[in-house]
Amino acid sequence: MAATETNNRPNTDEGGMGYLQSLPRRVVTVYLPLLIFVIVLLFPFYWMTITAVKPNLEMTDYANFNPFWVVHPTLEHIRYLLFDTSYPGWLLNTIIISTAATFLSLLAAVFAAYAIERLRFSGARQVGLAIFLAYLVPPSILFIPLSVMVFNLGLYDTPFALILTYPTFLIPFCTWLLMGYFRSIPFELEECALIDGASRWQILTKIVLPLSVPGLISAGIFAFTLSWNEFIYALTFIQSSENKTVPVGVLTELVRSDVYEWGALMAGALIGSLPVVVLYSFFVEHYVSSMTGAVKE
C-alpha cells in the first residue's frame, strides 16, 4: 500500500506544504469537517445495524429507551429473516445470477477488448467509442423494451432473464476497463510470441490473460457488485417470490401493507450488503485505482 502511495506521487516529500499549517488551524479546516463527513456517511449503516438487533419494544419506545443504543440486543429479527421468509433463497438467486452474469460478461469483454486493442481492424476506434457510449445508456430507458423481449423469448420470471440482460451494462464497462489494461501490455511480448509461432489464441491465453489478471479481478469485482446491486430489471422481469433477488425481495416481500417489520427489513438490508462490502474490503486498493483509472481514460 505504501509503495503505491509513493508511486502515485513521485518527487513529493510526504505532506507537501502541510507543515506550514498550525495544529489548531488543521483541526478546524481538516479534522473537524472530516469527522462530520464520516459521521454523516456512516450513520445510516450504524442505524441499520442497531435496528437489526433491537427488540420491537425498544424500537418504538423513544421515551424510555435512548434510540441510539440498544439495551437488550436480540437476534430475533435475523432468525425470522433466515427461517421464516424466503430470504436465503433470494440470497442464493442473487449469488447465482451475479456470478453467471459476471462470467458471461468477462468472457465477452476479454474478446472484445482484445480485438479492439490489438487486432486493429478498420473502425476499431469507433467500436471502442461505441462501447463506451453503450455504457452511458441507462437501464431506466431500456427496461420497457427489454421486458417485451424477455416476455416474447419466454424468459419472463426465470433467472436467465437477468443473466442475459445484466451483461448489457456489464460488458461495456468491463471492456472499457480491460482495454486500458491490454494497452499497458507491451506489444513486443506478443511479437516475440508470434515469431515463436504462437497463434492468436495462444497469445491471448498464454501471454495476455496471465498478465492482465489484476485487470480481470477488478473488472470481475465491478461486474459482480453492479449485478448484485441491480434493481430495475430484477423488479420488472421477475414475478414469483422464489426467483427474486435480494434487493427486490427485501423491498417487495418484507413490506406487508402497513405493518413494517423494520427489524427484519434492516437485517435483510444489512446481510444483503455484507457480501459486496466484504468483497470490496479485500480489494479496496484495486477498486479505487481501477475506478479512478477507468474514469481518467
Binding site: V38, F45, L251, L265, M266, V276, Y280, V284, V288
Partner: peptide, 23 residues
C-alpha cells in the same frame, strides 16, 4: 478513511434506501 468514505457507494442502493426510509 478512503475505504470507509466509499462505503455508501458500494452497498446496493435499494438496501441503503431502505435504511433512509426508516430514518
Amino acid at each position: 478513511f478512503r475505504a470507509i468514505v466509499l462505503l455508501p457507494w458500494v452497498v446496493p442502493t435499494v438496501l441503503s434506501a431502505i435504511a433512509f426510509w426508516w430514518i
